[in-house]
Write a protein that binds this DNA or RNA. Structure first.
Length: 105
DNA sequence: ACCTTGACAGAAT
DNA sequence: AATTCTGCCAAGG
């Protein structure tokens, strides 16, 4: 499980997510130079993400601002963390990306 | 060196 | 509208 260069790049991107902001996997993939389809690569990297290093993986969501599969972080716990960050959730349980969609530059 | 997996994304059915 | 399938990239075994 060596932290490859790509994974490290992903960690850096996620670590740069401002508080109260969320970003989709596709967005991260784009930042890394992948136009599309790299979501898998990003997810694969995040899968090995060192949470103990202060990596706010809970700020990383799926497309449209929907929460990640969840079972990886701990499910509902992620929602609480995001709320603590100042992120608001929609009644349907999605992140309000309308307000918290983080665009890299 | 080859095949499988993986926290995705988008279009099709 | 919801579910299914395929396509993309990278890393692990």
């Amino acid at each position: 499980m060596a932290e490859s260069v790509f994974s490290k790049k992903v960690y850096q991107i996620v670590a740069q997510i401002p508080k109260g902001k969320v970003v989709s996997y596709g967005q991260i993939a784009f930042m890394l130079g992948i136009f599309y389809g790299g979501g898998k690569a990003v997810g694969n990297a995040m899968r090995n993400a060192p949470e103990g290093q202060g990596l706010p993986c809970h700020r990383v969501v799926r497309t449209s601002g929907k929460l990640s599969p969840g079972h990886v972080f701990g499910g509902t716990l992620q929602k609480d963390l995001l709320e603590a960050e100042g992120i608001t959730f929609l009644p349907n349980g999605n992140v309000d990306m309308k307000k918290h969609a983080w665009i890299k530059n």
